[in-house]
Amino acid sequence: MRSFRQRFLGNPRVALGLAWLGLVVAVALLADVLAPKDPFAIVGAPFAPPAGDFVLGTDSLGRDVAAGLIHGARTTMLIAVLSTLAAVGFGAIVGAVTGYYGKLVDDVLMRTTEFFQTIPSFLFAIVLIAILSPSAVNLVIAIATVSWPPIARVVRGEVLAVRSREFVQAAVVAGQRDSAILVTQVLPNTLSPLIVTGSLLVATAILFESALSFLGLGAPNQMSWGFMIGAGRSFMREAWWLVMVPGVAILLTVLAINLVGEGLNDALNPRLADL
């Protein structure tokens, strides 16, 4: 059997996905070098088409679309990754506690989780932003709040399966504290599904951020891809590039994350992949 690394990186789809993601991350990190100006700066005549003075044209106020795309990569990735980390962290704790303790704790926490799951997540995010008012931090909070329940359920299932195993019982007998057992014995064995779900969650978070910005509920002071689409959608007929450029960026990024996520899944569960 091949190693994890071979199985993962040897997959051409994963390689493609990683290449694109690497590019996006590099652009996000180097945004201030690649486009030193404020992306909101009005730099030219409005509605200049691509391949003129500006590589990707300008928007309705005369802002450089290329600069927006570069700085948008940073905002979009940052919000997506942070909200995913928050969701995974919180979801994993809830899932681990419910799975490990069971009984009343399980009932209370799982009913709470179900409560969150019954609310359509996008509508819930809109309501949260409306209450909290749009800003980068609040976007992270809103996206994380609607994203953690599936993580909690996945982790709970894994913990339920693991906690009755001999090595856990051995740790109990050895006198380890509950928290230590959870962190050192149980959670490491739930990592592979967690990583897969978490990586796919980044893609969902990007879509959430874009959709919220599209509706005008994005962070008003940060240029993001969703913001660019939202600001450009009224001019779709006259200036296709306003929507097309960030739209393609979102499409490719979400696709890349999905390819990598599925690659991870195949690599971590090789027997499933062979089926």
């Binding site: 404020d38 909101f40 009005i42 106020l61 409306a130 008012s133 005008g216 008003p220």
Partner: peptide, 21 residues
């Protein structure tokens, strides 16, 4: 709001935008 923000920046006033219901 974005146009005003840019206009203010021209005379040295840094404005952050806030958009509420």
């Amino acid at each position: 709001g974005e146009a005003v923000q840019q206009a203010l920046a021209q005379v040295g006033i840094k404005a952050t935008l806030r958009y509420e219901d």
